[in-house]
Design a protein around this nucleic acid. Structure first.
Lengths: 125, 125
DNA sequence: ATAGGTGCAAACAGTTTGCATGTAT
DNA sequence: ATACATGCAAACTGTTTGCACCTAT
């Protein structure tokens, strides 16, 4: 049976409250504030368990370490700021990728990533 | 000045001839056939040099080890077969992602990945 | 002859795992 | 009380680097 430990609560809260996909180092750092002495192994173990449970989903940007966000959101994609490297959720998805699919191929899913500058970093030029 | 070594030629040829993005292990394996005794470190060193020179570009699929393909192709994206895990180039990119970009954000580039089954794997059901 | 390249092994970074200890139930 | 969870350190994987030897120029 699953236990409701201090560490697990801290990690869950960090992912839930951040409002954008966060990676293991950031989770570790933030959760450690709530749970001093927290080990990085526990962060990874919790992440993997939450992935298995379906509580969170991985947000894998091409060429970057994985980030995680709460599961259950509507179909959406992500925007990464080239200046601050934060990743944000996009709300809509204008999906018409059928025309890109080669003849004879069967399309099952798609991923879209946008890159640019977030509003904060646009302002701070 | 740059030297034209046996190993470098083999690695270049593998990437050029494969016709689809290939990763270090595959490059290593195939190039080793041409250059026996080839070390994995050399593969990585050549890849990094070719990236610097702009001879090849990285194809980073979300959550997967990087692959590489020859540079200089037109703007395009990639399709990964969920069955054989091979990655193929897509020819066109008809999308306009401006409407996905949040207000105040500045769009600089985008990546699109399609997933499904390639023609070979569709046939082999 | 010599600058640059290679192979090997050690070093690294990110992630996972074994084990003894700790703790929620 | 005990099964599950944690922290630490060691193991592992993919990539990089130091160094002595090698080779294209």
């Amino acid at each position: 049976m699953e236990r409701n430990t201090h560490q697990r609560r801290a990690i869950h809260k960090v992912i839930q409250d951040s409002g954008r996909p966060v990676g293991p180092p950031e989770i570790f750092e933030l959760a450690r504030a709530q749970a001093p002495g927290l080990g990085i192994a526990t962060v990874y173990r919790c992440i993997n368990r939450m992935l298995d449970e379906g509580t969170i989903v991985a947000v894998d940007l091409p060429g970057e370490a994985p980030r995680y966000e709460m599961a259950g959101k509507d179909h959406h994609h992500h925007f990464r700021c080239n200046a601050c490297n934060k990743v944000f959720d996009l709300l809509a998805c204008a999906e018409k990728f059928a025309d890109l699919t080669p003849k004879g191929f069967q399309l099952e899913s798609h991923e879209v990533y946008l890159f640019g500058r977030c509003d904060t970093c646009v302002a701070t030029v």
